[in-house]
Structure formats: structure tokens, C-alpha cells
Design a protein around this nucleic acid. Structure first.
Length: 492
RNA sequence: CGGGGUGUAGCGUAGCCCGGUAUCGCGCCACAUUUGGGAUGUGGAGGUCGUAGGUUCGAAUCCUGCCACCCCGACCA
């Protein structure tokens, strides 16, 4: 492992790419735009999955699995959605290879094996799922239908970046059907708050809960809600979305139910998702020039213990104490790694575990053995202190909680320091260049103005915050009246 | 899809202009000494120079095609 990461301050995007690779989260693959998620990165994703999955179950959802492929005729049934994704769909046209008569040892697509109907590799699953729901829903008694699936999807992106934008990515997609519009809207909002709760309490990423403007809305939805986080370079990142689909998909796929009164009505739908993009958010929100900084609740290894020893006997003495401590901490649900490799020296291990973002490091050496102490180092602040060894079992859990809270507070303070209210377009442009972050400004509500600002400044309206206070003002560009400020930012 | 760039050992690279069988660092393997912040020494292994063709006595180097990846734009979770 070579020393030193690029500096965030010098080249943020190089820093990100290198960090993702060197920390062992992911790497590029032989397939253009597709990444390999490595064991350490996947372990973090698995922790995210576990937490989210529990939250989905707690809100009444069940998991199921639908096919990777969507017949073209189904895909195009909901026109707006189909059009929205058309440009980035991978399409299966053939089902067989054969040996190439012209090139020995090579294969070619069998020209006689063309599919009668092309299959779209799902960019999202509304089509196949709503087609299925038609068969599952007859009566109000079948509602609400609350399903989630964990899956991979493919969107043929021109430009990709590890985790942030890849041609194939992993996600969960919830798809629900309800008897009334009100229930569906409630579901949409409920899941948005689940995401926000997850982002803030597990990712330690403060997020703005809001609604997208019509321009930024999911194709086929009546309303798109989102959570938006701020990265350390001042760019916003959409970390999750929740859509109120109205009856669009129910109409396109003819999903009707009989009400209590025996009247046939179309059901109301929602869909919501978060993806492996959250991994990118995790990296970009908290990490530093030494490597990852993982919030304890998502760290695959929460505590690493490094022995510092001279000779076999001393190592044995240390190991005996450490293994007892490890057992005690594990009994409290803490994941502990005892790094007793004798092929690396302590300094190397310190640097390596810092790169990997392990929240707490305990080092114990000869002097500690004599004094009954250990050195405790926290990753978030880099503070080191000497502690009584026997206290560690009580101290460490509290320290992990403290780190979790501190990482969140730090990100929150950063967001607050980088959220600026502006009232003139000149100031808006100046702030975007001088102090990137969220910019709160008045907007007249028209797509034209939004589009113009986007073209001129590359900043988009990230969302209209759900809790934004009413405030009379005028659009900074057109001077038209506005009832509230919206969040602008340059975004990933 | 437009503009730019790069392909040489696991990784990062020199060599290319000016043709003569590949440089250095990290990593890897062995042994020894080491171990409180990325150890040191000695020895060693590892390369169809992206790929296909062409020019030449001879190609990493010159020419042509192709492929891949990266960066910058337009598009997007």
C-alpha cells in the first residue's frame, strides 16, 4: 500500500476516487461503467441493508423479488416513465451465442436467435411490478399492498463514478398500492421520513427533507420527495427519493379494486428507493485526508486492537488480556478486530485502519501491561488518551455513541456554515463560486426560470423543504412574487 | 455522443521525438535484525510493452486499423 492520499483541498474528486479504491470499498471492473464492490465496501452496504430492511419491516412492508428483464411492451405502457428512461436502457435482443465460422475459438451472436420481443434490463421496476399487481389486487381487502425488493438495476450512463453513478447499481425499491390518494401520500411521506431517519441516525448525514420541482420529478410520478445532503466540497447529493405515483401506473396497467361499496376504482401508488450511492455519500460527507471516517453504527469493524510487543512472551501476555476484552465488548454487540498480524508493524497498522475508517483504535504495549492501561484513539477527532484497561469495557460503548453523535454534529455544522440566504442573482452567482453549498433563494415557481438558472450557473433546485417557512419575497431573477425560499446547489 | 488523454510486472512509472529486446519506485517471496505512527539489510521471483496488421535485417519506439480505460462537456439516482 503506497503512502498518502491526494488532499481533499487540492483535488476533491481524485481524493474520492483514490480513497474508495485504497480503503478497499470498490474498484473499476472489466465492464465499462460497472464496479466491483469489494468485501469491506460490501460489508458496509450489508449493514445499511440490515438497518433499512428492519425499518421497512417495522413499517409493514414485505420483501419480494421481480425479474431483471422487462418485456418492451410492458416497459412502454406508462409512457412518461418509459420516455424518462428510454435513453439509458440496456436491451436484450438475442438469446444465444454460437461458434464463429470465420474466427476459430470465438463466439458470435446467433443471428437466428433474435427475440421476438426485446427485453429491457430494468432501470427501475414499476412496469413489471404493476403488471404483476394487476393479478394480486381485486378488492379493498387486498390493500394496502406494501412490497419492497432488493435488486440491481441498470442505467446506461455516459459518465460513471464509483458508487455515485455506475451503469449497474444495487438498491431497494419499495412499491405500494393503496385504496386512497390520502393513504398513498401518507406512505410517500412516511418512507421519506424513514430515509431521513436512516441518513441522520446511521449515516450521520443531516438531510433536507423536501419536494422536487416538476423539472426534477421522477418520470411518471405526481410528486417526488427527496432527502438532500451536503458533501464536503459543497455539492449536494440526493440520498433518497420517495414518489407519489397517483393512479398513473394503475391506469397504465389496469390495476383496479372493488371498494366496500362495490365500485371499481384504480389504486393509488407509491415507489421509493435508496441505492449504493449512499456509500458515496458516506465517504464524501465525513472522510478526511487520512482516509475514511465511518460512523460507528455502519462501521464493519468498530474497534480495532493493535498489540505492541517485543517477543513472543509479551505478545502472549497482551493477547490474553485483549482476547478477554474482545469477548466482553462483543457481548455488548460491538464488532472488534484484534490485529495481531506479525507481518506488519504497529505504525503501518495504525495508518491502515485509519484509512479504513475504524472509529476506535486501542493500542496496548509493554508499558501498558505494567500500568494496567491502554491507549485509546478515536478516528473522528484523532484524539488519543491513556485509559485504565479495566475501564475499557464500559468506556468503549459510550465512546462509540459519542463518535456517532460527533460525526453527525460536525456534518450538521458544516451544512449550516455552508447554507446561505441570498436575495439577488448577483449574490447568488458569487456565493456559488466563493462558498459552495446550499443557497436559499426565492423562486417564482416556473420551470423556465429554474431552467435558466441551471443553464447559467449549473445550480439546480434541490428541493422545496417540507418545513420551509412562508416568507414573502420576489424571484431573484424575474422579480415575480414568491411565497418561500427553495434550496439551490450544484449537485452530484 | 463531442473534446482531450493514457495503455509497458499486482500498482505507479521511465524509455518513444532520434528503432538494436525494457528503467525506477512501491508491492510480492525468502532469511535476518526489528516492533509505542506507514522498518532496515541481503538475496530472489515476476513483462505476449492494450490488440491486429504493416514498414524494417531488427519495432515498446515509425505507419494504419481496432479495443479498453480515465478526464472535461451534454444526460442522469
Amino acid at each position: 500500500m503506497s503512502k498518502g492520499l491526494p488532499k481533499r483541498s487540492e483535488d476533491y474528486s481524485l481524493w474520492y476516487n483514490e480513497l474508495v479504491k485504497r480503503a478497499g470499498l470498490a474498484e473499476n471492473s472489466a465492464v465499462r461503467g460497472c464496479m466491483v464492490i469489494k468485501p469491506y465496501g460490501y460489508a458496509i452496504w450489508e449493514k445499511m441493508q440490515r438497518v433499512l430492511d428492519d425499518m421497512f419491516k417495522a413499517t409493514g412492508h414485505s420483501n419480494a423479488y421481480f425479474p431483471l428483464f422487462v418485456p418492451k411492451s410492458l416497459f412502454e405502457a406508462e409512457e412518461q416513465n418509459a420516455e424518462g428512461f428510454a435513453k439509458e436502457c440496456a436491451v436484450v435482443t438475442h438469446y444465444r451465442l454460437q461458434t464463429d465460422p470465420d474466427k476459430p475459438g470465438k463466439l458470435r451472436v446467433d443471428p437466428n436467435a433474435r427475440l421476438e420481443e426485446e427485453l429491457i434490463v430494468r432501470p427501475t421496476s414499476e412496469a413489471i411490478i404493476w403488471n404483476t399487481y394487476k393479478g394480486w389486487i381485486q378488492s379493498y381487502r387486498d390493500l394496502p399492498l406494501l412490497i419492497n425488493q432488493w435488486a440491481n438495476v441498470v442505467r446506461w450512463e455516459m459518465r460513471t463514478r464509483l458508487f455515485l453513478r455506475t451503469a449497474e447499481f444495487l438498491w431497494q425499491e419499495g412499491h405500494t398500492a393503496h385504496a386512497t390518494s390520502k393513504e398513498a401520500v401518507e406512505e410517500t411521506e412516511r418512507m421519506l421520513h424513514v430515509y431521513a431517519d436512516f441518513a441522520e441516525n446511521f449515516l450521520a448525514l443531516p438531510v433536507i427533507r423536501g419536494k422536487k420541482t416538476p423539472n426534477e420529478r421522477f418520470a411518471g410520478a405526481l410528486d417526488t420527495y427527496c432527502i438532500e445532503g451536503l458533501m464536503q466540497d459543497g455539492k449536494a447529493l440526493q440520498a433518497g427519493t420517495s414518489h407519489f405515483l397517483g393512479q398513473n401506473f394503475a391506469q397504465a396497467f389496469d390495476v383496479k379494486f372493488a371498494t366496500r361499496e362495490g365500485v371499481l376504482e384504480h389504486v393509488w401508488g407509491t415507489s421509493w428507493g435508496v441505492s449504493t450511492r449512499l456509500m458515496g455519500a458516506l465517504v464524501m460527507a465525513h472522510s478526511d485526508d487520512e482516509g475514511l471516517v465511518l460512523p460507528p453504527k455502519l462501521a464493519p469493524i468498530q474497534v480495532v486492537i493493535v498489540p505492541i510487543y517485543k517477543g513472543e512472551e509479551q505478545l502472549a501476555q497482551i493477547s490474553e488480556k485483549v482476547l478477554a476484552l474482545k469477548k466482553q465488548l462483543e457481548a455488548k454487540g460491538i464488532s472488534v478486530k484484534y490485529d495481531d498480524r506479525d507481518t506488519e508493524r504497529p505504525g503501518f497498522k495504525f495508518a491502515e485502519w485509519e484509512l479504513k475508517g475504524v472509529p476506535v483504535r486501542i493500542a496496548i504495549g509493554g508499558r501498558d501491561l505494567e500500568n494496567g492501561t491502554a491507549e485509546v484513539a478515536r478516528r473522528d477527532t484523532k484524539e488519543k488518551s491513556s485509559q485504565q484497561f479495566d475501564e475499557l469495557v464500559n468506556l468503549v460503548p459510550a465512546l462509540l455513541d459519542e463518535i456517532q453523535e460527533n460525526v453527525f454534529q460536525k456534518a450538521l455544522a458544516f451544512r449550516e456554515a455552508n447554507t446561505t440566504k441570498v436575495d439577488s442573482y448577483e449574490e447568488f452567482k458569487r456565493i456559488l463560486d466563493e462558498k459552495p453549498g446550499f443557497v436559499l433563494a426565492h423562486w417564482d415557481g416556473t420551470p423556465e426560470t429554474e431552467e435558466r438558472i441551471k443553464e447559467e450557473t449549473k445550480a439546480t433546485i434541490r428541493c422545496i423543504a417540507l418545513d420551509s417557512p412562508e416568507e414573502d419575497g420576489v424571484d431573484m431573477v424575474t422579480g415575480q412574487p414568491s411565497k418561500r425560499r427553495v434550496y439551490f446547489a450544484r449537485a452530484y
